[in-house]
Design a protein around this nucleic acid. Structure first.
Length: 474
RNA sequence: GGCGCUAUAGUGUAAUUGGUUAACACGCCGCCCUCUCAAGGCGGAGAGUACGGGUUCGAUCCCCGUUAGCGCUACCA
């Protein structure tokens, strides 16, 4: 498939949401797979609702996901001439006509039809206007939109790469507006012209555009241009199977970044929503995703966003990513929590990396490094609510622990082996279970009932802190 | 209301051109490991493929209908 060119064309009327991100990802994967180009275009023809801030947010979201674009961003608002001249041409060729119906009138007609439970489509009032009538209205300076002339009879069908053959009757397609009375193009004119000019070969977009496609194909034909291939991807729904929205919590991709998801994990998760490689792989890296991606692997039914699986995937990435790669993320978290010290990327960097390795298999989200790592970085940590009653009940601990502390203090080398040997030997001597001491030590050393293996904790914490905390316990 | 699309365990996905005990993952339960938890390993419950008809020797897969969900039905995109 030579010269594949695809695009992601969000409108900046909102942030980059999960659905948009997934569409962008599929386009990006498709482009990479075919060594084609991924183009970014901002559809900002709705001046009322578009904003520069949203544009910024969208770019930020894409960058976070690592979806770099090869061309753009192009802005529709900067291509007004093209749209207007195309509309003029269509008008001259009688493929479109001027419509003087006011929006109020149209709205009233639509409402009346709805009330009478009748199907409504534009009734073609202005399609029947004579030359003279048009000139008269124009002379009066009446505002006019330009509508496309949809054939009154017949059918249109196209081969969707995901959904197969889609058929529509012209009877159900109204004479849609191409150019608004303020001279701005509508979505249909905009996309088609842009996709033509940008030589887009495959239009990969949300399934909510399926019903729009026939109109656009009609436009391609009227313009005498080749028609790209269409691939519509199923929508992503919330847990209640309604369209994903603010009601379902975070829907902007940057919100997931802020909650502590890794971009690789999020991207992997997104790829699996509505697509599968055809075999049973789930955790897939970028290259693997690119290699395996194909339009054939996209399925037709809507997908439900499963937060638990996202979290699981994130934990998988967290535990398998080398500490050095996790470092910048963890650093940012520690800074936010006020636990950062410049030494951690200087003289104590190796130690800090080992701490990351210690914590990462138990982390599900980035902030877990803070909650589980605090006791290693500071003496200001809380003792978890029910931890003492669970593991510090045994009265003999009061004597045992300080004595153990002294033994550990005397160790010439404070490593995993010597800590373990010392504690177990001590337990034998005192005829108590090692577990008793271990669990009690865990609460004292980390403030938690749940933490990594105790000897690793001791080793990472260091001799001084370990001894102090065991001693200071009671 | 009209038109379009979809329908496999709670969720995400598999199931060569119709022939499988309908598979895998998340989640849930249990066991192992073990100093707790996570990870890991092992096992279990959970769908007879929305429902009803056809076609066929045989349908998750093809056709029709019903139902449900979603989408479109704007001078939004």
């Amino acid at each position: 498939m030579p010269d594949v060119r695809v695009r992601f064309a969000p409108s900046p009327t909102g942030y980059l949401h999960v659905g948009g991100a997934r569409t962008a990802l599929f386009n990006w994967l498709f482009a990479k797979h075919h060594e084609g180009k991924f183009i970014l275009r901002i559809e900002d023809t709705d001046v009322e609702r578009s904003s520069a801030e949203m544009v910024h947010g969208i770019l930020e979201g894409l960058s976070w996901l690592g979806l770099e674009w090869d061309e753009g961003p192009y802005f529709q608002s900067q291509r007004m001439q093209q749209y207007q001249s195309a509309a003029r041409k269509l008008l001259q060729e009688q493929k479109a006509y001027a419509c003087f119906c006011s929006q109020e009138l149209l709205a009233a007609k639509r409402e009346a039809a709805a009330k009478a439970k009748l199907a409504w489509k534009y009734d073609g009032t202005c399609r029947k206007l004579s030359e003279a009538e048009i000139r008269e209205k124009e002379g009066q300076g009446q505002a006019r939109a330009i509508r496309f002339k949809v054939p009154s009879e017949g059918k249109i069908h196209f081969e969707d790469q995901v959904f197969g053959t889609i058929e529509h009757d012209f009877q159900n397609i109204e004479d849609f507006v191409l150019l608004r009375s303020d001279g701005m193009p509508t979505y249909h004119l905009g996309v088609v012209l842009d996709d033509i000019d940008m030589r887009i070969t495959h239009v990969i977009r949300g399934a909510d555009h399926i019903s729009n496609t026939p109109k656009q194909i009609l436009l391609y034909r009227a313009l005498g241009q080749p028609i790209p291939l269409f691939a519509h991807v199923p929508l992503i729904l919330g847990p209640d199977k309604t369209r994903l929205s603010k009601r379902h919590g975070a829907t902007s991709v940057t919100a997931y970044r802020d909650q502590g998801y890794l971009p690789e994990a999020f991207r992997n998760f997104l790829a699996l929503l509505g697509w599968a490689p055809g075999d049973e792989r789930e955790k897939m890296g970028t290259q693997e995703l690119i290699q395996s991606f194909s339009l054939q692997g996209i399925n037709k039914s809507n997908a439900v966003f499963n937060l638990e699986k996202l979290e699981w995937l994130n934990s998988q990435y967290l535990s398998s990513t080398p500490a050095a790669e996790l470092f910048p993320y963890v650093k940012a978290e520690m800074e936010k929590a006020g636990l950062w010290d410049a030494e951690y990327e200087g003289s104590r960097k190796a130690w800090f990396l080992s701490l990351i390795d210690l914590l990462k298999t138990r982390a599900r989200l980035l902030p877990d490094f803070v909650t589980n790592g605090r006791a290693f970085l500071s003496d200001e940590y809380e003792i978890e609510a029910h931890a003492p009653e669970k593991f510090l009940q045994e009265p003999s601990l009061r004597l045992l622990l300080p004595e153990l502390a002294s033994r550990l203090e005397g160790l010439p080398r404070f490593d995993l082996e010597s800590c373990e040997f010392t504690l177990r030997e001590f337990a034998d001597e005192k005829q108590v279970k090692a577990g008793l001491l271990i669990n009690a030590a865990r609460v004292l050393l980390t403030g938690k009932a749940v933490a990594p293996g105790i000897f690793q904790v001791m080793h990472t914490l260091g001799q001084k802190r370990t001894v102090e905390r065991l001693r200071k316990a009671f």
